Amino acid sequence: MALNRIPIKFNMLRGRTVLAIKYEKGVLIVADKILVSPKGTEYHGKERIFKISEIIILGGSGDSADLQNIIDKIEELKFEHDRYGITLTPLMLSNWLTKQFYFHHTNGSTLHIDVIVGGLEAGEPFLAHIRHDGSAWEHTYTACDFYCDIVPGDVSYKNLVYEHIKAEINKLSSCSVEGKPSNLIRREEALTIIIDAAKHMSRRFKHSNEVYLLGECDIVDKNSCNIAIEELSC
């Protein structure tokens, strides 16, 4: 497969799996605070969930340097939008990231990261997954892990956590948002599922500490939301 031919940086400090769920009035994103070297050494205390604006939250997996670089470029993008009085939305950011990742990938300078973008879009919760090769999609739940996607044999664990989330969500009955039919679950249900998934990851990486970051975009009304990022002990 073409993805397996992407060269791995010999000195890459990588972040592992990021999980996300969209619920009836918001988005939850969870990730640990650990970077791992190619030799397996763990470096603790590195945050991989970011508040981009008052309506956008982002989580990233993969090379720490590439992730910080793209965050810096997003800040420049946001500055340009603010300069002209344009509000950067999650959909706009996702489209921009898709083009950036695709450009780098097709020019032989693939960014070694996958990202998840959440937030408030047109009064509704938004969740998108953008891969290092420029492919992207919107979904009600997702999991990204750059390293698992390109190394043969490592993809199974990320898929296992993803399938766990999928199964738990499918067990729940549909709910409604302001009287409109919806298949989105309630916040309490989403929180339970994502914390349980984080516990699965904690048991998998048994040498890691058990502190995760939980990022949330909780919609207040059609034009505003509360974004909070806090530590989560599993």
Rank of each mutant, 00 (worst) to 15 (best):
S173K: 13
I169H: 05
R187I: 07
H164M: 12
Y162C: 03
L191I: 05
S173V: 11
R187C: 04
A190W: 01
E163Y: 10
A190R: 03
E178G: 03
E188W: 02
L191C: 02
I193W: 01
R186A: 15
P181A: 11
C175K: 13
A167H: 09
S174G: 05
A167G: 09
P181F: 13
L172F: 09
T192N: 13
N183G: 12
E189C: 04
E189N: 11
L184D: 02
G179K: 11
I194P: 00
N183Q: 06
A167W: 07
K171I: 09
N183E: 12
L172Q: 13
E168C: 08
L191G: 00
S174M: 07
R187S: 03
Y162W: 07
Y162N: 04
S176G: 07
E178A: 12
V161E: 00
I165V: 10
I185E: 02
L184W: 07
T192F: 08
Y162T: 08
N183H: 14
L172S: 05
E178D: 14
C175P: 04
H164C: 02
C175W: 08
V177Q: 02
I193D: 01
E189P: 06
R186Y: 10
A167M: 09
K171Q: 15
T192K: 10
E178R: 12
S182Q: 04
E188C: 01
P181S: 06
I185A: 03
S182M: 01
L191M: 10
N170Y: 08
S173E: 15
K171Y: 13
I194G: 00
N170Q: 12
L191D: 07
V161S: 02
V177A: 06
E163S: 11
S182G: 02
K180I: 11
E188Y: 07
K166C: 08
V177F: 14
S173L: 10
K180D: 06
N170L: 11
L184N: 03
S176V: 14
G179R: 12
N170H: 13
A167V: 04
S182E: 01
E178L: 13
S173Y: 09
C175E: 15
S182I: 02
A190K: 01
R187F: 15
V161A: 01
I169Y: 10
E189R: 04
C175L: 08
N183S: 13
R187A: 08
V161W: 05
E168P: 07
I165L: 06
I193K: 00
I194C: 00
I185Y: 02
K166E: 14
A167Y: 09
L191F: 06
S182Y: 01
E168V: 05
R187N: 10
E163W: 06
I194M: 00
V161F: 04
R187G: 03
P181V: 13
S176P: 04
L172K: 12
A167R: 13
I169V: 14
R186I: 06
Y162M: 04
K171E: 15
S182A: 02
S174E: 14
L184E: 04
T192M: 08
S176H: 09
K166M: 08
E178C: 04
K180P: 03
E189W: 03
I194W: 00
R186V: 09
S182R: 00
L184C: 09
E168M: 13
V177D: 06
Y162Q: 07
A190Y: 07
I165Y: 02
I194Y: 00
